[in-house]
């Protein structure tokens, strides 16, 4: 068990446990927010670990930081009581449990049908940390999901770093953790969505102010 796997296991356990704590244990909103903070931080760490460095950092800043702080401020603003009423009706509860089942179902279906079973996550610093390349390549070739990776099936040796051989952006990706490639993708090929996104954020700001601001009366 390498250090990375160890780190992944620790962070995953932290995320799952703090999520469970938030959902089940936390009695007050402040406790829940604290658990959420822990969970989101762990998730950011995992994101960095599996190769989404920039995503992980941004996630940490925006959600682990700003959003959690915002939530706490709202708790301070409006008070945290509530949710202490008598239990809701049986039928409603049945419905909610049905929804829970559906959520679990979605998760199971996605996990079950995802073609990546048993395939190591590539793109972490170097192939050596994940394991012997030959073994990985053999696993890739044997696995039915390899049919979906034509490139991987054709170049077993390149399966770990297919991008390096094929695309300059991908080469940058492996070299510098993907920041440059990410920047190019965001500001070149996805420039229009990005601009639309900024408009969305602006309208969200305006909308929040309009909704939460006190009326003159």
């Amino acid at each position: 068990m390498s250090a990375e796997v160890l780190l992944f296991d620790v962070l995953a356990a932290l995320a799952v446990f703090s999520a469970a704590a938030m959902v089940i244990v936390a009695r007050t909103a402040v406790a829940a927010a604290t658990a959420l903070l822990a969970c989101l931080t762990a998730v950011s760490g995992i994101l960095v670990l599996i190769g989404g460095e920039l995503v992980g950092v941004v996630h940490l800043i925006v959600h682990g930081g700003a959003v959690t702080v915002l939530l706490l401020m709202i708790v301070l603003l409006v008070g945290a009581e509530g949710g202490r009423r008598p239990a809701s009706r049986v039928r409603d509860t049945a419905f909610k449990l049905l929804g829970c089942g559906a959520a679990v179902g979605i998760a199971l279906v996605v996990v079950h049908t995802a073609p990546g079973t048993g395939v190591p996550v590539s793109g972490v610093e170097s192939g050596a940390t994940i394991g012997p390349g030959a073994a990985s390549a053999a696993a890739t070739a044997l696995h039915p999901a390899a049919a979906l990776h034509p490139a991987a099936a054709l170049h077993p040796a390149a399966a770990l770093h297919p991008a390096a051989a094929l695309h300059p952006a991908a080469a940058l990706d492996t070299i510098s953790g993907g920041h440059r490639a990410m920047g190019l993708a965001l500001f070149r090929s996805h420039l229009l969505p990005l601009q639309v996104l900024s408009l969305l954020l602006l309208s969200a700001v305006v909308g929040s102010v309009a909704l939460a601001g006190r009326r003159a009366d």
Partner: peptide, 22 residues
């Protein structure tokens, strides 16, 4: 080694926990 199974399982657990809580 970290496989996709791990990542997806983590994601599924978090999703289910969030959904149940919500």
């Amino acid at each position: 080694m970290i496989t996709h199974d791990h990542v997806l399982a983590l994601s599924a657990l978090l999703f289910c926990a969030g959904a149940v809580g919500a």
